[in-house]
Design a binder for these strands. Structure first.
Length: 273
DNA sequence: CCAGTATCCTGCAGGC
DNA sequence: TGCCTGCAGGATACTG
């Protein structure tokens, strides 16, 4: 389940392995992803371009090229970007293959097809609906100052607000769950019923957990892997996600599970207020 | 405008 | 063993 730390891990790996590689060909299955995978457009635009260092915005990756333009990628739930030798066997559900000038290829693999790969011409980035709707980058130094008032203005449960990409871009179910536990805040608490001081603590907890996860190369529950196929190491550091029914590592209470905003949520009844 | 829910998709786990 | 059901949840379309 790629959230910000997983996407950032992929970005860093691709920055090393793809920079200055020239694209020579593109193949695609034509199967629909979240948005239609427009293979003819990708085949018309990508070959001949050189890949630059990728950027990340929320959970989106922007593979910038020279001449300018970008391949916008979202990994959805089960998406992977893999770099492998062109001769090697392609995994099931490989929807897009970008061949490089050094005999390797970039593969977009996504069994559940919640992901996305679209060409953005110069200038399109500013008007792309997915990107334009994104809120604050949670790791931005201004987040602890700017985010609490936005959360305080809303009646929805804090967990739903943290996962709302229009407010904060990049936090998903795993890290929202962990940050709320770290901050000692109940996931179902309404934003407007939480003090600014607690909201600030919550935002700092979000930053902390995201940074630690990036340091560990992301979290692998089932599907995530870096471009080389390697799993992230943060799963062992998850304190509550996936541990419903276990003891709370902080107070020894029982971790409960509920559904909030359609997502499973784990929290400690005793020490999360 | 805001909050909550249904929807897309596949793989896997659990029950029988 | 095999079939069925439910769950996992990213973004987004829809409803109230």
């Amino acid at each position: 389940m790629p959230e910000l730390p997983e996407v950032e891990t992929v970005r860093r790996a691709l920055a090393h392995s793809l920079a200055r590689r020239r694209i020579v060909a593109v193949e695609g299955t034509g199967l629909a992803l979240r948005r239609p995978l427009d293979v003819p457009v990708l085949q018309a635009r990508l070959p001949g371009r050189t890949l630059l260092a990728p950027r990340r915005r929320g959970k989106f990756l922007l593979l910038d090229t020279d001449p300018s333009g970008s391949l916008l990628v979202h990994l959805g739930m089960t998406g992977r970007l893999l770099v492998a030798d062109a001769g090697s066997e392609r995994p099931r559900h490989t929807h897009l293959v970008v061949s490089l000038d050094d005999g390797r290829e970039l593969r977009f693999v996504d069994p559940r097809r919640f992901g996305l790969a679209v060409w953005l011409a110069p200038g399109q980035e500013a008007v792309d609906p997915s990107l334009a709707a994104l809120g604050l980058e949670p790791l931005d130094p201004t987040a602890p100052r700017l985010l609490p008032p936005l959360l305080h203005a809303r009646r929805a449960p804090l967990k739903a607000l943290l996962m709302d990409q229009r407010l904060v871009a990049g936090v998903g179910n795993i890290y929202a769950t962990e940050a709320l536990w770290r901050a000692g805040v109940r996931p179902g608490r309404a934003g407007c019923r939480t003090s600014p001081a607690r909201l600030r603590r919550l935002v700092l907890a979000v930053q902390e957990v995201l940074e630690e996860a990036i340091d560990q190369g992301g979290t692998t529950i089932r599907d995530f892997a870096g471009p080389g196929g390697d799993p992230g190491a943060f799963a062992v550091r998850l304190q509550v996600y996936g541990h419903a029914g276990a003891r709370c590592p902080r107070c020894g209470g029982t971790l409960r599970t509920t559904r909030l905003a359609g997502r499973s949520t784990v929290w400690c009844l005793r020490c999360q207020r």
